[in-house]
C-alpha cells in the first residue's frame, strides 16, 4: 500500500518555513471500490473502510474517502450521521473520547495514523483543528498564538514573526496589532474564532479540520471566516463539518453527504452516502437521499 515508513514521528517535514508544502510522492495503490470523486485529487488523507465504535455502539461504518490537497472538503448530513466522528478520526481527537475505538485505515500521506510509534502530538501539529465555539485560552492574544509553537518545541528564530505571520494568515493582524498583550477574551466572537485559526496555523500544519466553525457567529463574522477559508485553501488542506448546507455549497470544492441508517435493533450507524464535486452534489446529486436532504425533504 505504501512505501513510506509507518511512523508519523519520522515523516519528513512537509511544510517549509515559508509555509509551502513540499510534494511527497506516495504510491496510494489500487483503491478498489473506494469512493473517490471524479477528477481524483492529489490525496493527503485517505480513509479506507473506517469504522468507529463508542463502546459497543457502532457510530460510523464503511467510510472510504480521499481528501484532496489544498482543497476544501465539506462534510454534511443530519445530526447523528457521524460527520463529526469522522472528522475527529482525522487527527486522532477520538483518542480523548472514553470508549472510542477506530478500525480501518486512516492514512496521512500513506502513513497509518493509528500505527505503532506514531507521535499523537505530531499528528495534531500537522493536522490542526478549529472548534465550533471559539475557545481562546485565558491568555493574551500574543500568548494564544505563541502557545502551539512553544508546547510543540517548534524551533523559531523569532516568535514575534511567527505570531505576526499567523495573525496575518488568519486575517486578524490589522484588528489586533496594537493590543497583542491584551486578553483574548476582549475580542468579539468572530475575532476569537479567527484567533483560534491563527493559533492553529502558527504550528505550520498541513491540514486544518474545522468543526462547525461558524455556527456560533453572526452572518458578517461568518462571511469573514468563509473568505478566510478560501484564502487558507491556497496553502492548506481544509476539511470542514457544517450544518449550514449553503456554506458547504459556497466554499467547498468537494462535499461528502453522510446519513444514519437504523439496523433491526434501532441502532443508528452513520454512513457515507455520496462524495463528489460540490457543484455536482448541489446541482445533480446521484443519490436520492442526498437530493432529499439538500432540498429539505428529510433530515
Amino acid at each position: 500500500m505504501t512505501n513510506v515508513e509507518p511512523d508519523l514521528a519520522t515523516v519528513p517535514e512537509t511544510v517549509g518555513a515559508a509555509g509551502a508544502p513540499h510534494q511527497i510522492h506516495v504510491e496510494l495503490g489500487d483503491r478498489g471500490n473506494h469512493r473517490v470523486p471524479a477528477g481524483e485529487p492529489d490525496g493527503v488523507i485517505e480513509l479506507a473502510n473506517l469504522e468507529v465504535f463508542y463502546d459497543k455502539f457502532l457510530a460510523v461504518s464503511g467510510v472510504d474517502m480521499l481528501f484532496g490537497s489544498k482543497e476544501i472538503t465539506a462534510l454534511i448530513g443530519p445530526s447523528g450521521c457521524g460527520k463529526s466522528t469522522v472528522l475527529r478520526c482525522l487527527n486522532r481527537m477520538n483518542d480523548l473520547v472514553p470508549g472510542a475505538h477506530v478500525f480501518g485505515d486512516v492514512r496521512f500521506h500513506g502513513v497509518d495514523m493509528y500505527g505503532p510509534g506514531v507521535d499523537v502530538i505530531e499528528v495534531r501539529r500537522r493536522i490542526g483543528m478549529v472548534f465550533q465555539k471559539p475557545n481562546p485560552f485565558p491568555k493574551s492574544i500574543y500568548d494564544n498564538v505563541a502557545y502551539g509553537p512553544r508546547v510543540t518545541g517548534m524551533k523559531t528564530d523569532n516568535m514575534d514573526d511567527v505570531v505576526e505571520q499567523a495573525l496575518h494568515g488568519a486575517a486578524l493582524w490589522d484588528e489586533v496589532k496594537d493590543k497583542l498583550k491584551q486578553s483574548a477574551f476582549g475580542l468579539s466572537g468572530g475575532q476569537q474564532q479567527r484567533l483560534c485559526i491563527a493559533r492553529t496555523i502558527a504550528t505550520s500544519p498541513e491540514v486544518i479540520l474545522m468543526d462547525e466553525p461558524c455556527s456560533a457567529l453572526d452572518p458578517i463574522a461568518t462571511a469573514k471566516i468563509e473568505d478566510l477559508m478560501v484564502d487558507l485553501a491556497k496553502t492548506y488542506t481544509i476539511i470542514i463539518v457544517t450544518h449550514n448546507m449553503q456554506q458547504a455549497a459556497r466554499v467547498s470544492h468537494r462535499t461528502a453527504f453522510f446519513t444514519a441508517a437504523a439496523d433491526e435493533h434501532g441502532q443508528r450507524t452513520g454512513r457515507l452516502v455520496e462524495f463528489d464535486n460540490t457543484g455536482k452534489i448541489f446541482g445533480n446529486p446521484a443519490d436520492q437521499r442526498t437530493e432529499a436532504y439538500i432540498t429539505g425533504r428529510f433530515g
Partner: peptide, 9 residues
C-alpha cells in the same frame, strides 16, 4: 449560471 445558482443561493 447553473453552478452559481446551485452553490451561491
Amino acid at each position: 449560471v447553473f453552478d452559481l445558482m446551485a452553490r451561491q443561493a
